[in-house]
């Protein structure tokens, strides 16, 4: 039980060390607002990562999320600016579109037994290409509701505030936590990630679950796209470029195994915070160019994967020892 939580504790420790280190090194780093900013600046990433956690725990991968995010910024800005549709219509349309894209990819993957890597990779192309079909140029959003969402702040204790996006992200995380822990669907995701063939033979609805997982990831990507436009107030085909990897990195740093079956959304949130604080640290440091973020993230992914490897080999060795001990014990108990 404890061993299972170890990766999350490592991520938590890492975050605390980074936050503490930053607070000691830089004046003005340590503040509640700076902590809240991590959520404000990364809320769309968290939303993407929630969907990605489901996919990765099920043993799959979704490379299309960054592009679907971009497509959803394009479609929403185009519908708002060019078709002058009301946000009440735009938001459901965009969410339905993202879900449909995910549904489509999930259907191909599951029904025809195709590799998720290739199908979602093609999805990456498809969504990015569709962006250009909508428009080659940036589309600015001038809709009042959107502007309101972009500029609104909600005061918390003291003078500290968060943006409405944070509430959306937190709601998504909480809903994700509930689904993963307390619904049959969520548990089926773990079962499929643990051993898909077993899941089939146990009579679990593997087909529907897997298709639903990709649909869910598509939904999260579309929602993240809407949230993203709250920051940029624009739709642009190059938004979210490479963000699929940020999402994957966030999930991995959060302790989810890329082999599937093991993972936790709390870890993913911590992973997102670690991701955010690296960026903040580099900004505070001042002299390093922002591309160091990538190198540091790459390094962290390396460290975490290494830890998981050591953890795995350690566990299988412990298991062998346990088995050796258990055989005579089992005899005695029966």
């Amino acid at each position: 039980m404890k061993a299972r939580n170890l990766p999350i504790l490592v991520t938590l420790a890492l975050f605390l060390i980074m936050f503490g280190g930053g607070s000691l090194a830089f004046i003005g780093f340590f503040s509640v607002q700076n902590f809240l900013n991590l959520f404000i600046d990364n809320s769309y990433l968290l939303i993407l990562a929630v969907g990605m956690t489901f996919v990765i725990v099920s043993g799959g991968i979704d490379l299309s999320v960054g592009s679907v995010l971009a497509l959803s910024t394009m479609v929403s800005s185009s519908l708002l600016a060019k078709s002058h549709l009301s946000p009440v219509l735009v938001i459901p349309i965009v969410l339905a579109m993202g879900t449909a894209l995910g549904l489509f990819m999930g259907y191909l993957i599951q029904t025809f037994n195709l590799p998720p890597f290739i199908i979602t990779l093609a999805g990456l192309y498809l969504a990015r290409g569709l962006c250009y079909v909508v428009s080659i140029d940036t589309i600015a959003i001038t809709n009042e509701f959107w502007k309101g969402a972009a500029h609104a702040t909600v005061n918390l204790i003291g003078n500290n505030f968060v943006s409405p996006s944070v509430f959306i992200a937190v709601a998504v995380v909480l809903a994700g936590l509930f689904v993963m822990r307390y619904t049959r669907f969520g548990r089926n995701v773990y079962a499929i990630g643990g051993n898909e063939q077993s899941a089939v033979l146990m009579g679990l609805p593997v087909n529907h679950t897997k298709i639903a997982i990709y649909a869910l990831s598509g939904f999260c990507s579309a929602l993240a796209g809407i949230v993203f436009t709250f920051y940029t107030l624009s739709g642009y085909a190059l938004h979210g470029k490479g963000m699929e990897l940020d999402a994957i990195a966030t999930v991995v740093i959060g302790g989810t195994l890329l082999t599937g079956g093991v993972g936790n959304l709390l870890g993913t949130v911590l992973g997102g915070l670690v991701y955010g604080i690296i960026q903040v640290l580099i900004v505070f440091q001042g002299t390093l160019n922002s591309w160091w973020t990538r190198i540091v993230i790459g390094f962290l992914v390396f460290v975490f994967c290494l830890l998981q490897r050591i953890f795995e080999t350690g566990k299988s060795a412990a298991l062998a020892r346990e088995r050796a001990k258990q055989a005579p014990k089992a005899q005695a108990s029966s």
């Binding site: 619904t183 049959r184 773990y190 077993s198 899941a199 679990l204 093991v262």
Partner: peptide, 24 residues
């Protein structure tokens, strides 16, 4: 044909977990 990453109890009941108020 079980899932090594789930608990013993869950392996027995996965897919037909007892629900109360819509949650497991």
């Amino acid at each position: 044909n079980l899932c090594p990453n789930l608990s013993v109890a869950e392996n027995i009941f996965v897919g037909r977990q007892p629900l109360s108020l819509g949650r497991i």
